[in-house]
Amino acid sequence: MIKAKPKPVEEILNYIAPYQDILIVGCGGCVSVCLAGGQKEVTILQTELELARDKTKSTGQFSGYTVERQCNEQYLGSLDDMVETADCVLSMACGAGVQLLAEKYPEKPVFPAVNTIAIGIDLDIGLYEERCRACGECVLAYTAGVCPVTRCAKGLFNGPCGGTNGEKCEISADINCAWHEIYTRLKAQDRLADILKIQPPMQWQNQVKRTIVQKGYEQRYYQESI
């Protein structure tokens, strides 16, 4: 799922300094799973902010609420009244959730309270590792399930760079060379032919907002059927 980390309290204090009534909105989805923005983190942030307020003898009222998922408007209905009375909103969801809140309540300032970091896996409690950058053209099929976009420092698609250092990446001895791993795994599966073909460069689409229409829903959302 999406992995995030709480922002430093000092940074958040800067955002909210001009406002009196501050609503902190948690998300029960990904950020809850990675211990960054669920109900408990909402209470933790609220407590931190209250402590900071008392220390600097400033004013400010905080309240907290957690919704099922901030990335779907269907779950935001219960927020209407709370946002109405708040001066600003601190969203603890991933970037997508923050933006949906900001869109839904354009008259209110909505600030992010976490740094959205990656799509990753859970290694252990509180330990996660990035695995995917949502490039939109997944190539895992021919790279034996090793993502060259995420794992190769240069995002190379056709074999390692000249700097590969045996098993390690040239940028650090702590990082495995993704292409070494791709090679070894493909070899073991007798699939080396998969990487002989030249892969065309990625048609990077990051520059524009990508819309994802799930299979089977094309008719419904595209003007002309494809």
């Binding site: 408990k40 209470t43 933790i44 407590t47």
Partner: peptide
């Protein structure tokens, strides 16, 4: 001490 006390809330 006060931090601990405040965080009993969670």
């Amino acid at each position: 001490f006060f931090r601990r006390l405040a965080f009993l809330k969670i």
